[in-house]
Amino acid sequence: MDTSISGRRLARFLDDIAQQRTLPVSIVCDNGPELTSKAIFFWARERKAALAFIQTGKTTQNVFTESFNGKFRDAPASISTGF
């Protein structure tokens, strides 16, 4: 988690994950700037991964992410940062 991340940085991070796991066929995401960037568009196209965007203002369509974010926000700093 970070407060600001570019599409290029996210693409590099996803490539790092892809070395350890199989990439999904579809990625459900919100309309954040890092996910709507050209870098992610081209990254997904090259890897044949579909980007499935939730409707703007409908965060409940992405319940797994919202659940994680809520738990992460509520966790004590020592747990959420690992320090």
Rank of each mutant, 00 (worst) to 15 (best):
T3Y: 06
T3A: 04
T3H: 07
S4Q: 09
S4K: 15
S4D: 08
I5E: 01
S6D: 05
G7M: 06
R8I: 03
R8P: 04
R9V: 14
A11P: 01
R12M: 07
R12T: 13
L14W: 06
D15N: 15
D16A: 15
D16G: 14
Q19C: 06
R21C: 14
S26D: 12
I27T: 07
D30M: 07
D30W: 06
N31D: 05
E34Q: 15
L35W: 06
L35G: 03
I40Y: 00
W43F: 03
R45S: 10
K48R: 15
A49M: 15
L51S: 01
I54L: 01
I54G: 05
Q55Y: 02
Q55A: 11
T59L: 01
T60Y: 13
N62G: 03
N62F: 00
V63C: 11
F64A: 03
E66R: 12
S67Q: 09
G70V: 06
G70F: 08
K71G: 04
R73V: 01
R73S: 06
A75L: 13
P76H: 05
P76R: 05
A77H: 05
A77Y: 07
S78Y: 08
S80I: 14
S80T: 15
S80N: 14
T81H: 08
T81K: 05
G82Q: 11
F83H: 12
F83L: 14
F83N: 10
